[in-house]
Amino acid sequence: MSADFWAGYVSGAVGILIGNPLDLVKTRLQAGQTAPAPALLATGGATTPTQRSFKQHFDRAGTLVRGSTAPILGYGALNALLFMTYNRTLSLLNDNPAQPASLAKVWCAGAAGGLASFIVSAPTELIKCRAQVATDRHASSWRIARDVWKAEGIRGMYYGGGITSLRDAVGYGFYFWSYEWSKQSLASPDDTNSQTAMKVLFCGGLAGIVTWASIFPLDVIKTRVQVQVSPSTSGSVEEGSALLQQPGRHKRLGTLAVAQEAYRSEGAAVFFRGLGICSIRAFVVNAVQWAVYEWVMQILQEP
């Protein structure tokens, strides 16, 4: 495999390990869910609103890594495919991936990478989101994947794939564009190694924030689409989202219907619910992710 494949894989896995706790909160907020009452009752005594909010989402140590198994494996592969496709596309557009001259070509190459990553991101996101909103403490990524596959096969694993591919294409276009723009703007020939490293961290974090700000409404809709469960799928693993617990619903809603229902019931603000926590996570995760990517690339490309 090429250097950018392994650099992408390692940086993607590291990013998930760092960002999963905050990603869990984001997913639950997007799905319109709070933690089940027993999680609060078990704490005992009086709690402040901040403590209650924290305990709602982190009711036990295992919650911190809930839903992380699929992303650690899947997002590593996704990131590898993303960076490989980005670099190859930019080369096909007659630009240099190491020092691109055209930010427009960078955006297009990033969007191409996002579309290619859909192969991995759609099933990974579906499993992750369902694991993160599950009320069953014994729910695992493997169990959810098994249940979905048994009930619906490959189509079930790619449920919500359309909105996921749109989100990824737009998001990764801005991801690479904002990273290269900020990196080129801040670059100086007099930078020391430590200054360069700090700028990579800052540019990576900024790219994460810009990316999520550009696609957050799409991500909210994607999450709500994917946590819906097929009537043919049963079991406590698949329960847990307030969106699903509506009496009289016998079939899943399409993407447009989910968006319309969310707007009708909760207003426009619902499409930005969780953006604050997501921005914090995005800065930290992508700062580290870009730093790891650049570091691994440097090691692997040394003669």
Rank of each mutant, 00 (worst) to 15 (best):
Y9R: 04
A145Q: 00
G235R: 03
W142C: 06
G156V: 07
V284F: 14
S91G: 11
Q301Y: 04
F58M: 11
Y159C: 00
A145H: 05
A213T: 12
G44S: 10
V10C: 02
S121R: 01
C129G: 03
P303W: 13
A77V: 15
S140I: 01
P217R: 00
P97G: 08
I209G: 02
L201I: 15
Y158K: 03
A282W: 07
G254M: 02
I277G: 00
A187E: 12
L103K: 12
K199Q: 14
D191M: 14
G12W: 04
Q228A: 06
A262E: 06
F271G: 09
S241L: 07
D95E: 12
F83H: 15
C108I: 15
A111F: 07
G162W: 10
R252P: 01
T34M: 10
V120W: 00
V229M: 06
K183F: 08
V170Y: 06
F283C: 11
I16H: 02
H57D: 06
Y175P: 02
S182P: 00
P49C: 01
C278T: 11
W181M: 11
P100K: 08
K251L: 00
L244I: 13
A46C: 07
T211G: 02
G12I: 08
N286L: 14
R281C: 11
L253D: 08
